[in-house]
Amino acid sequence: MEIKITQKFVAELIGTFGLVLFGCGAAAVAGTTTLGGLSGLGLLGIALAFGLSVVVFAYAIGGLSGCHINPAVTIGVLVAGKITAKEAVIYMIAQFLGALLGAFVLQQILSGQIAGYDAGEWAYGANGWGKEYQNEYGVTAAFLTEAVLTFIFLFVILATTSKVGNPTMAGLAIGITLVLIHLVAIPITGTSVNPARSFGPAILAGGKALSQLWLFIIAPIVGAIIAAFVWRTLEPKGN
């Protein structure tokens, strides 16, 4: 069965849209608020929202596009020789558009609060670092966190989806890995490991979120490329 590139484009757009809406939505809408007697989700809840989003879309669109929903994943898969450069570019365009659309919908939902919504700095689940962000880690710690955790994320993706992995369980393993990553990184950077996930909220939040976006593009890509090269040295050759 041939899958057209347009089908892959739409799949990646929808998947990334859902990841941002569910993950960033959990952080922005319910992560830190207490309304009507309902407590905020907290660290574990937000981590689960991102991880479960990946699991859901891995099984929903994995058969169409492989469910990258992350430019760092696409670049890592490209370096590993699993996708063409043309496909990679199309995937990334879809991912950035999907993330922006997800952040836009989240923005419209939040602006619907009757009492008004004060977006403030790093709004809509945007990533960041430094003074007044989370536990106020510096730029070096933020970069190292994002690069190393993306390395681990890509390594798990490449290993579980390889011929020596277990493709039927790959979506679950990848999603659980993302949960673990969020448990470590949320207090540091809010957790990106995904340039598109950072791009959507930062574009709409502006300010510090936008000025710090560069780190959440470069660091995950660095980690992904290193993971791809490492996996290429480990992956069994031949049949």
Rank of each mutant, 00 (worst) to 15 (best):
Q95M: 07
W129L: 06
L52C: 13
F151H: 04
Y124G: 00
A94W: 01
S192P: 11
N127P: 06
F96K: 10
M92A: 11
T6I: 14
F9G: 01
T140E: 14
L144Q: 00
A49C: 09
V55A: 10
G31P: 06
A141I: 15
A170M: 07
L35M: 14
G128M: 03
L44G: 07
V56N: 12
A11F: 05
L41C: 09
Y133R: 00
S39W: 11
A224P: 07
F50M: 11
N194G: 06
A209Q: 03
K237W: 02
L213P: 02
E136Q: 14
I3C: 05
A228T: 03
A80D: 08
Y91S: 05
A170C: 09
A47G: 08
P201F: 09
A94K: 07
I61V: 15
Q113M: 14
A173N: 07
G45F: 02
T16R: 06
G98W: 00
V156W: 11
L44M: 14
P201N: 12
C24A: 14
S111R: 13
G116R: 06
A205Q: 06
S162G: 12
A159K: 13
T233L: 14
A196W: 00
V77L: 13
T32G: 13
G165N: 06
L41G: 05
Y91N: 10
Q134G: 02
E2S: 12
E12H: 02
A99W: 01
A147P: 02
N70C: 05
A123S: 14
G25K: 04
S211E: 14
A94V: 10
F143Q: 01
A26I: 01
A173G: 07
G36K: 09
W231G: 04
G18T: 14
A205L: 05
E132R: 05
V73P: 01
A28D: 09
V179P: 00
